[in-house]
Structures are given as C-alpha cells and as structure tokens.
C-alpha cells in the first residue's frame, strides 16, 4: 500500500508522521511530540510527552499528586485513565465534596482513553450526574466499570436500586462490570419500536447480548431485576445473554426476594462460565409460599450443563 507521495521521504519523516497520527488515536494527548528519544545510556531524560503517557496510567489521585513535580506536569492528570473514586476516596468526605471533585475530573478530562472508572457513592438525587459520568467513561472506551452504590442513613428504606441504562450494556469496550445495588434497565420488548422487521427478526434483535463482559460482580438486587417478571399478566423471561462471561461473583446483600431459582435463571444465560463465587453473608433462604407456588417446580426441572465451569465457591463470611 505504498502511497506515491510518501516515496522519497526518509524513514524518520515517515515515523514522525505516524507518530503524529498516533497522537490522535490512542495516545491522543501526545500533542507535543518530539522525536528526541532518550539516549539509551541515560534513562533520566525521557521527553515530556512520554512521561505524560506514563503518568496517564496512574490512578487519578496519584496523577494529581505528581502535578507538583514541575510546571510541565501540573495538568498531566487531565489524561488519567484510572478514575478511582472508591471507598478509600469516599471515606470521611462529604457527598458535596465528593461530587464536586469527581465532576471536576470528568469536566477537565482531555485524554482519549479511560480504562477504569470506580465509583463509591450514594446516587440519591444525583442520578443524572452519575449517568453523565458513566456516559463519559463509556465514550472513552472504559474497560472496567465498578459502581458501588450505597444508601446513606437507614439501609433499604424502600428505595430502588440504581437503574443502569442502555449505554452500559451496549458499551463494546466493557470487560469487567462490578455492580453494587444496581439493576440493568432492560426494557421489555413491547417498549422498543422496531418498524418494518419481521416478527422473527424482531425477537432475535431484542435479546440483549452483553457479549463483551467477561467478569461480573453484582449484589443480589441485580438478579432480582433480571428474574422473570409479570408483564401484561404473563410471567415473561428477560431476554439477555452474557455470551462471553467467564467469572461471576454474586454477593447476597440485602437479598429480599432472591432465591435459588433467580440464581439459576440468571446462570442459564451465561453458558461460558468458568468460575462462580457466591458470598452468602447472612443470607438465609426461606422457603416461602412464593417459592413453593412458582419457583420450586421450575427449579427442579432445570437441567443445565456448563461445559467450561472449573469451580464454584460459596462462602459465608
């Protein structure tokens, strides 16, 4: 694919052009590209753009700290790929303070890539803001999304888990999804208009294939959101498929309705599972009338096989 106008250029010129082009792709922020590479006998004079690139792999808090290295690096944190606002960060911080720091980081983010976004936050009344952060991280190709939502004050005062919208399960880059007090908001098929398709195509099209996700950690609220539901008077199964899921970690926390039937109804959508972890915590399975009436028989009828399954670990802490 030799393009004529490139003939006669020296190797170095071509490389420099390629480097420039590269800045606009993955290492987007290298807009001060120089070709003055380090002399190999001294590793102490890396060019600033290479240093910026290294610093972008630091967790955000560290990236901000190294801003005082020298004036050249005071804005390096705007390119951080690891936006960790986890429980360590949340500890002892007011929700207002938390919110403004996270928002500032997202607003000033200039890098083209975010690999990880961790958030430990009470999303109450800040749902739109949280959605904005999630959307930004997805736009920048986030691979690991770790959303640890909790509720301030008394736990489970009848509040709903955070509903994740379609951006999350349509994000192609996403490989690891960790969710605490979250549900995927999979709309039932009647709500999705699909004009002009035949019935068969429509049905297939409405299976939510969450193929990219390889590791999923969730609390039991997540399963409750995906278990079969009464829609229009009929018990309907949610149409989804985790085609590539290898590891599933279930935390039984605040489980109210979740029972073995919910778990198995979920697992059957994940044929490639290799490892299953279940933290039972203080979960106690109660064989109530709902189980006896609706679930017990269906549960006993299941015969599933997981060809790739290597181990299951259930633990009680």
């Amino acid at each position: 694919m030799a393009s004529p106008e490139r003939k006669g250029q020296t190797f170095l010129q071509i490389s420099r052009k390629r480097l420039k082009r590269q800045c606009h792709s993955s290492y987007h922020h290298l807009d001060r590209v120089t070709t003055s590479f380090t002399q190999a006998d001294r590793s102490d004079d890396l060019p600033d753009d290479v240093l910026d690139m290294i610093f972008s792999f630091l967790p955000i808090r560290n990236a901000v700290q190294i801003g005082v290295l020298s004036t050249r690096f005071k804005n390096s944190w705007n390119f951080s790929r690891r936006l960790d606002f986890d429980d360590d960060f949340a500890r002892g911080r007011s929700p207002e303070d938390f919110k403004s720091v996270v928002n500032k980081v997202f607003d000033r983010h200039e890098g083209s890539s975010i690999l990880r976004f961790r958030l430990c936050f009470d999303p109450d009344r800040e749902e739109l803001l949280v959605e904005k952060w999630i959307r930004k991280s997805i736009e920048k190709g986030v691979e690991e999304l770790d959303l640890e939502f909790y509720q301030n004050g008394n736990v489970f005062q009848g509040r709903w888990p955070f509903k994740l919208n379609s951006e999350v399960y349509e994000a192609e880059s996403l490989k690891i999804l960790k969710l605490n007090m979250c549900q995927l908001d999979l709309p039932p098929k009647v709500e999705r208009p699909s004009k002009g398709f035949t019935e068969t195509f429509r049905v297939r099209n409405l299976v939510y294939d969450l193929y990219p996700i390889q590791v999923l950690t969730t609390t039991s609220t997540f399963l409750e959101g995906l278990s079969p539901k009464f829609i229009g008077g009929k018990l309907r199964e949610m149409q989804f498929f985790f085609g590539n899921l290898k590891e599933f970690h279930l935390i039984m926390e605040g489980a109210i309705y979740c029972n073995p039937y919910d778990i198995i109804s979920f697992l059957k959508h994940c044929p490639g599972l290799e490892k299953i972890f279940i933290d039972l915590n203080d979960f106690c399975f109660v064989r109530g009338p709902y189980w006896e009436l609706h679930n017990r028989q269906s549960f006993q009828k299941y015969s599933l096989s997981f060809d790739s399954l290597k181990f299951i670990k259930a633990s009680r802490i």
């Binding site: 590479f37 590793s43 290294i54």
Partner: peptide, 12 residues
C-alpha cells in the same frame, strides 16, 4: 523498563 518505553513508542 524506562528504556524500552521510547522504543515501543517509536516502533508503535
């Protein structure tokens, strides 16, 4: 490690 980075960057 540090010496390899400019090389990997240069060779893309």
């Amino acid at each position: 490690l540090v010496d390899m980075i400019p090389v990997a960057n240069y060779l893309e």
